[in-house]
């Protein structure tokens, strides 16, 4: 994966690395359609998930991905671990690595925690499964994967045939709590690396304090921006991170920034709506809109497994960039 031993940020991959992840994920998506969706690729490897923050889909998705690759999975439940006895992150990581772990998948409420872990481990690969407001690289990758899949379906071609050319000039509108969103930061990096135009739409209090160096535009009027969008990426208002106080009321937020049914009618015919989940129906997305065919949330979840299989395969297989052969799936 562009020579990087860890996946801490989408920027570790670069454009070619992202393209490769999408390509390999496509092969694993095929595995998933089989009656026994399992390959022996990572037999003998051990993958540990260290989630210091709650998660439903990401943790299940990574563990499913590892199991479908025949890796052994260790799952550290922080609530019942020695972390509760005051064990430091460093000691926890060193303990886990001493057990012969090949990959550590970490989620943490602090930005940069996976970077520290990557500095401490001697041989394990580190995968960032979400760190504070910073990044959630695999989410952005599966979002790109899903968008390409939808575009390919509509054209009646295989996604691989589209390559990454389908992202060139694609207009992506990211709506909502960008300030506190690790998904948004990873999506901006991933979509722009693939050639898409990214626009952020949010109240000023939910934008990052500085967008210096971000290759994005900012829309102050969601209604005007919606009509132009090929992809609308909705973000959750992160009430548990105090985002509630960044807007006066949820009702006002929904009225100004939510994808209501009335607003969804402004979308172009082919526009795709993504959401990293968990959705809060009635806040950032109306329930009716969430259930429209253009809203691909379930597809995103399904694709998460294939994309994470690709990440684990590419990291643990140790292949050089561009030379990774898709495992024999015949």
């Amino acid at each position: 994966m562009s020579g990087s031993r860890h996946l801490l940020s989408v920027s570790d991959l670069g454009t070619d690395g992202i393209a490769e992840v999408l390509r390999v994920a496509e092969a694993f998506a095929e595995v998933e359609r089989r009656s026994v969706p399992k390959v022996p690729t990572l037999r003998g490897k051990v993958v540990a998930t260290l989630f210091f923050e709650e998660s439903t889909r990401t943790r299940l998705s990574f563990e499913t991905a590892a199991k479908r690759l025949s890796a052994d999975v260790l799952s550290l439940a922080v609530a019942t671990s020695s972390v509760k006895k005051g064990e430091s992150l460093r000691d926890t990581v060193e303990t886990v690595e001493a057990m012969g772990i090949d990959a550590v998948i970490i989620r943490h409420s602090s930005a940069g925690a996976p970077h520290l872990v990557a500095r401490w481990v001697e041989r394990a690969h580190v995968v960032n499964a979400g760190d504070g407001w910073h990044e959630h690289p695999t989410q952005a990758l599966l979002d790109c994967f899903t968008v390409r899949q939808v575009l390919a379906e509509r054209k009646g071609v295989a996604p691989d045939e589209l390559g990454i050319g389908c992202f060139e000039g694609l207009r992506v509108l990211i709506v909502g709590d960008v300030r506190h969103s690790r998904v948004a930061r990873s999506e901006v990096l991933a979509y722009t690396a693939l050639g898409a135009h990214v626009t952020l739409a949010a109240p000023g209090s939910l934008l990052p304090p500085s967008l210096e160096g971000w290759p994005v535009e900012v829309a102050t009027d969601l209604d005007a921006a919606l009509g132009d969008a090929d992809v609308v990426s909705l973000l959750r208002l992160q009430a548990e991170r105090g985002s509630g106080s960044f807007v006066p009321t949820l009702r006002e937020y929904t009225a100004r920034w939510g994808l209501t049914a009335r607003r969804a009618a402004r979308l172009g015919e082919d526009a795709i709506v993504t959401h990293p989940g968990p959705m809060v129906r009635g806040v950032e997305i109306a329930s009716d809109v969430a259930d429209l065919p253009r809203t691909v949330v379930t597809q995103q979840v399904a694709n998460g497994v294939a994309v994470r299989m690709a990440i684990l395969f590419l990291l643990l297989g140790g292949e050089l960039p561009g030379t990774a052969e898709v495992p024999a799936v015949a």
């Binding site: 930005a111 940069g112 760190d131 504070g132 407001w133 910073h134 990044e135 690790r182 930061r185 990052p208 304090p209 500085s210 967008l211 210096e212 160096g213 971000w214």
Partner: peptide, 15 residues
């Protein structure tokens, strides 16, 4: 410091 780096790194900033 709240600015370009804090925004990119996702670390809460002090203006």
């Amino acid at each position: 410091h709240e600015g370009s780096w804090s925004s990119r790194l996702g670390i809460p900033g002090t203006p």
